[in-house]
Design a protein around this nucleic acid. Structure first.
Lengths: 211, 211
DNA sequence: ACACGGTTTAAACGTTTGTTTAAATCATGT
DNA sequence: ACATGATTTAAACAAACGTTTAAACCGTGT
């Protein structure tokens, strides 16, 4: 009990601080103080700062990617059974929707959303490499599915557009509140489902644009 | 001569290291060592690490934004004189093209491109706040111009889509080389002008999508 | 009651951080 | 040639970093 409790409290505190300040700018002392545990607990339970970051990622990324993969395969096989080419928008939805829906799981998960969004932007190194290691298989699967859904695009163009999409997604994910400079009197607190459709409007149009 | 030389060498080294490792992960000792100057020179010439970062930004951001603003006003007034509504793609081009063209100015400017791309992603704090301070006026101007060019969009939707665009831009700017995980045998070394058009294809289609 | 392995604790480890100091060096104008 | 102000230098500063240590603590099974 004590063990799980301590580990969980460290994970929660680290998730919040990593998301808000970044990996390098967050000290173990700040994390353990916020978690109310001893400084050495991080090295005892996670082997060090780097192991802690990986654990923070894994805790939520594993079920998230499992959900994404499951939905993707469902869309693909449903299309295949009815002899259709799967729609680009539906493929994207399997990747995008679980991400946005994380925000509805409470403030803790929202921190994770910002953290993931930031991992794609942090300098090459620890956070990026850890994240890529756990995302690469899913991304390759997605790339392949999109290539079949958009045969008119060259592989290079599709690859570029997929990265435009990833950039847009990671940016909007790390700007959960008023991080972005809103010009004046604009309400940006959309429901997650609305946000998903807004995002799909933009990105499917971009992906399907005639080259 | 000695002064300018020292300041310039510090700026170049800082630009490169900040871009590659991030602000917090780069030490003044690494910068001064790479620049071949004394450690104290940073505090003497720039007042500290934060002042150095601001100087790195300002050196290139000022002429860059001046160029962007000049082109934007040119497009707007040309459209107004001929009684047309300025095209969305041309408005975007004034903002996007000078950014991509920086990559043709040599490896040094390329580091700056990555640095700017990263500033939009770094944790809230020093780099982000410095960057926003120098970008806000231009972004408001751009937002206004797009609102006129896309009257069918609600202010909230336009605002969201503009952020999708900024996210895509900053992402592709910080992934200059093989930072992104390319699946297999895909050549992504596009010429800047090709990249601009690819980016405009994607983002104009996204912005103009029917809501 | 006792012993034992897992856990927590306080303290210290050696490094590295950004910044400061005071002396040395340089360039420049008279 | 000399004096003056700007620049560079080496050295040191306190503070904070991630990590390690050894002792104290805890619950559990015998």
């Amino acid at each position: 009990m004590g063990q799980l409790d301590t580990k969980q409290r460290i994970l929660n505190a680290a998730e919040q601080l990593f998301a808000r300040q970044g990996y390098h700018a967050t000290s173990l002392r700040a994390i353990t103080a916020a978690a109310g545990v001893n400084l050495a607990a991080v090295n005892y339970h996670f082997g060090g700062k780097e192991g802690l970051l990986e654990a923070v990622f894994l805790r939520r990324l594993e079920p998230l990617n499992a959900s994404r993969l499951e939905q993707l395969e469902a869309v693909l096989s449903a299309a295949e059974q009815s002899g259709r080419i799967p729609e680009c928008r539906e493929i994207l939805r399997t990747f995008v929707a679980p991400t946005f829906r994380l925000r509805d799981l409470g403030a803790e998960a929202e921190n994770f959303v910002a953290l993931v969004g930031r991992a794609l932007a942090e300098p090459r190194g620890v956070p990026m490499s850890i994240f890529v290691r756990h995302m690469a298989p899913l991304l390759e699967r997605l790339h392949l599915a999109l290539a079949r859904s958009l045969p008119q695009l060259s592989r290079e163009t599709l690859f570029l557009r997929l990265h435009f999409l990833i950039g847009a997604l990671s940016h909007i994910m790390r700007c959960n509140e008023k991080c972005m400079m809103v010009p004046e009197g604009i309400e940006v607190d959309r429901k997650s489902e609305e946000l998903i459709e807004e995002f799909l409007d933009f990105t499917t149009a971009g992906l399907e644009a005639t080259p």
